[in-house]
């Protein structure tokens, strides 16, 4: 699944560490999310969408395999 986390984070001038702190996850998790290596849990997806003030569909792009 693709996502716009990196794009949204950079738009707002936030560091990976700061986003990780706000979402209460490790910086590595943010890195893996941005690279598309890790798909977040539904809770984390909601936290991310709430943090950026967008809907989950605006951040995560579902692709048929």
């Amino acid at each position: 699944m693709k996502n716009r986390v990196e794009e949204l984070r950079k738009e707002r001038g936030i560091k990976q560490e700061e986003l990780a702190m706000a979402l209460e996850v490790s910086r590595q998790t943010i890195g893996s999310l941005e690279n598309g290596r890790y798909n977040p849990s539904i809770q984390l997806a909601f936290k991310i969408s709430k943090y950026f003030g967008l809907s989950i569909e605006d951040i995560f792009i579902y692709e048929e395999e």
Binding site: M21, V25, S26, T29, S32, Q43
Partner: peptide, 11 residues
């Protein structure tokens, strides 16, 4: 605690 409870680390 964040590192310990991190969902990726747990997974």
């Amino acid at each position: 605690n964040i590192e310990k409870n991190d969902e990726r680390n747990i997974a």
